[in-house]
């Protein structure tokens, strides 16, 4: 479903070229549960951003669901992100002035889905994620765990092909973190492709397939 081949990504930092992705090839199938680990600065976030179409490689090809998305224009990239990618961030990235429900519905709103349909789809997620009595609360009225659950609901509301989580527990205490991992793994069991970037080995080891990135290269891959 995701086929990266020979991906290179270089940044220019202070006049110096830094190779963040160095000829990386990676194939992820539908329904996989994959963790990307590695020391900071190894390029694991860059890999995630390239998969999530937020970043474009300098060379190499990226096929998403069989379609070459390497050189799409901004408009098409945005549309593809909207339909196929769900992002979860360490710092939640909820919009503070919107309610939990409005935050969850944000991708649908941007895609132009009518309000009634949005309400229906967010209501299902709000209930199944245990946020029933929190739907009208603002993010600052929610606990860390609740905020991340809102963010996950937002990521999956458009039924994306792949769910990309960048240190999803990095800003949570142990028990909330465990709940979030349970939630994500539950989604994966229901068929959701899941990619988690983490430097926490305890979380990374839980994934069925583990990829290790060092200096912009794939140092190890437990399967696939």
């Amino acid at each position: 479903m995701i086929e990266l081949s020979d991906i290179c990504r270089t940044f220019t930092v202070g006049g110096q070229e830094v190779r963040a992705m160095d000829h990386v090839s990676l194939t992820i199938g539908a329904g996989e549960y994959l963790s990307i680990m590695g020391p900071s600065g190894s390029g694991k976030s860059t890999l995630l951003n390239i998969i999530g179409l937020l970043d474009t490689p300098n060379s190499g090809t990226y096929l998403l669901d069989g379609r070459d998305v390497t050189s799409l224009a901004d408009e098409q990239l945005a549309a593809t992100r909207s339909r196929k990618i769900g992002f979860i961030f360490q710092f939640f990235h909820l919009i503070p002035r919107l309610s939990a429900a409005q935050n969850i519905e944000l991708p649908l709103m941007l895609a132009g889905v009518p309000l009634r349909q949005r309400r229906q789809r967010s209501a299902v997620l709000i209930d199944s994620f245990g946020l029933g009595n929190r739907r009208h609360h603002r993010p600052d009225e929610l606990s860390g765990g609740q905020r991340q659950r809102v963010a996950i609901a937002r990521a999956v509301i458009n039924q994306p092909a792949v769910l990309l989580a960048d240190e999803p527990t990095g800003n949570l205490d142990r028990s909330s973190g465990a709940e979030i991992i349970d939630l994500l793994e539950g989604l994966n069991r229901a068929g959701q492709t899941l990619v988690i970037v983490t430097h926490d080995p305890e979380i990374g080891e839980r994934a069925r397939r583990r990829v290790r990135v060092v200096d912009g290269r794939l140092a190890s891959d437990s399967g696939g």
């Binding site: 999530g52 937020l54 901004d74 408009e75 990239l77 945005a78 549309a79 992100r81 909207s82 339909r83 990618i85 992002f87 961030f89 710092f91 990235h93 919009i95 944000l106 991708p107 941007l110 895609a111 937002r154 990521a155 458009n158």
Partner: peptide, 16 residues
């Protein structure tokens, strides 16, 4: 800025 990044991540184009 962070909000703009988020909007882009969840499917907003530059034009939006």
């Amino acid at each position: 800025t962070a909000e703009i990044g988020l909007l882009r991540a969840v499917g907003a184009s530059r034009q939006q």
